[in-house]
Design a protein around this nucleic acid. Sequence first.
DNA 1: TTGAAAGCGGTACCAT
DNA 2: ATGGTACCGCTTTCAA
Lengths: 372, 372
Amino acid sequence: MAKRVTIRDVARAAGVSVSAVSQVLNGKGRLSSDTHRKVEDAVARLGYIPDSRARSMRSSHSRTIGLVVPQIRNDFFASLVSAVQDTLWRHGYATLIGSSFDDDERQDAFLHTLLTQRIDGIICVPTAHGTPGLEAVLANDVPLLFADRTIDGFETIPRVLADPEPGLSEALRDIHKHGHAKVAFLAGPATVLPTLAHRCDVFRAVATPLFGEDNILVRTASSPAELPGLAVQDAVEFGATALIFGHSPTTLRTLPYLVSTGLEPGRDMSIVSFDEVQTFSVYRPRISVISQQVAVMGESAALEMLALVEHADTADSSVASAADSHGFADASDADTADSILTSAEPPVPATKLISTHYIARDSVCPVPTHAA
Amino acid sequence: MAKRVTIRDVARAAGVSVSAVSQVLNGKGRLSSDTHRKVEDAVARLGYIPDSRARSMRSSHSRTIGLVVPQIRNDFFASLVSAVQDTLWRHGYATLIGSSFDDDERQDAFLHTLLTQRIDGIICVPTAHGTPGLEAVLANDVPLLFADRTIDGFETIPRVLADPEPGLSEALRDIHKHGHAKVAFLAGPATVLPTLAHRCDVFRAVATPLFGEDNILVRTASSPAELPGLAVQDAVEFGATALIFGHSPTTLRTLPYLVSTGLEPGRDMSIVSFDEVQTFSVYRPRISVISQQVAVMGESAALEMLALVEHADTADSSVASAADSHGFADASDADTADSILTSAEPPVPATKLISTHYIARDSVCPVPTHAA
DNA sequence: TTGAAAGCGGTACCAT
DNA sequence: ATGGTACCGCTTTCAA
């Protein structure tokens, strides 16, 4: 297998010019059907595979999106990745995936690699903080979208998030209906993850009218590794007969502990957890969950990113002539221009909310007669 | 943010030539420490990020490896991806990940994209069959490595596989020790996946001397979706009191069915499954597993691929002069030449085996007194 | 030790 | 409708 087949080889074999081949391959009209056929023949005969690097260097788009998740081994993120990748794929885009392991530096290192590849955009589930890497992405004008999480100081970044309210609300009503008087919310590392902290707030807001301020308890951890034992003890002492977990990895680590304590889920203690992970549906009792509809979230994020990318494309060329230096305001203009036709600084930083929903299963039961 | 910073900008800012900058960035010695500093200053000041596309076009390597797995949502493959990516990362390589969904065409489509990107090599967990896409990879001289699975007709492709023998052997001894007389092996879609078929053979080989030919049962499915009910019924009728699953997705789908039948795992029926997935360690009883050491497998595959890539690098230049047209026979020669020390042709180990091992947990118990 | 210039494989623009 | 060619950003070879 000598050298790689290039577009020039194809042109030669087809007896046409290089540009003709390029045209045909990109469907840029203006070619005779005869040329068309000759080119396609040659391509097939030679097994020509275009070089997307060369292509993207000239055309300044790579049809590739970067995707950063904390942990691909986490069922939730694996599903997110799958959904994003699948959607992008359908639209002709490839996906570059990386794990940050929830570590700022790993994340930034990967972002750097992404920048290095001149991809068209980045979907990121950020670590807890803003980082230089994220700033670099912005500084390089690469479209950025947050998924599942946001961070303070990046309010201008569009994002796709789950709205915990509907799911929490349904879950709490179900628990209430089962006669429980006291509920605890174990949020996981909410001290570090704003998303989890937000769930705490929503929990309070929804649970208070239902159970009364004195009958709800919220417990957070200050790190993902913090052992759940203490929080569970607190909840038990508090008299809670139902537990809602705001973070599935925490749930997974807590379940065995709970059992070892002698508390039987779905009998002595009702359990609800965020995230529709496989283990919960196989476990006995099957664990009720608040689904974040990760597939929907992934698809949304992908579509949102595609919109950003297309928009960036057109904005770039149209703005080039008009804008003076930054052209940031102009870009914003373009966004709103579709609804209003005057001008007016428009509300660009879009937040797209995915509704959560509650899936009732065996782990939520009536209050045990013998109070735990 | 006007235009992107290029190497020329850096050169200008540093007051040196473009090639000087390139040298410094690639550590190709021969520069004065003064130039060195000036360049590094400029790079930092301008926030220069090299364009890896342009770089790889000239240098003909991208430091990127493609990775194809059947399903990233499968815990096992998610872990594999994680391990591969992590290892490659440590060696300065990026990873392009894709799911084939165990579909030939999806796989080939992704392989095509990979080819399009001119990556350095491909690690693939292939679908059940050989495909045109895989042929194309070979035809384009892209180093290919199979992980976790092989397929017929691709015997020359190096591979990293799990050796089921040690794990199965230990598991069977444990089951035997617990007094079980009859064991069944539920292999999942072994009709389609050669890897699973192989496990059946190994199971027979190991189980026969221990239990006797008449006391073992092997059941396979002809598709991944085939419901496990029938196989379980067969096993029960056969009188098996211990079940070994050769395919974790099947296990996951079967457990609920088993329970619904009234058979309590770890009491009425002993259970062992392949794959160390999270659900098994959280489940009650905790499910004994035959671990494929997926982290080791992933790391091995990554390292093996790196070796292939490095080797391809050097081989390309040296072989170029020797080989006539295809050079395929030559390559085969090289394979065998490792035992002989005449030629400098390097040794390329075709198959690397990762040892499986058994992890005993609660799901394996003594034979129930009241025969099921 | 350093700089100039030739490509890598495409795309896009401008002639024809 | 088609072909010629500059050029994307970088590495590499060759001269100075």
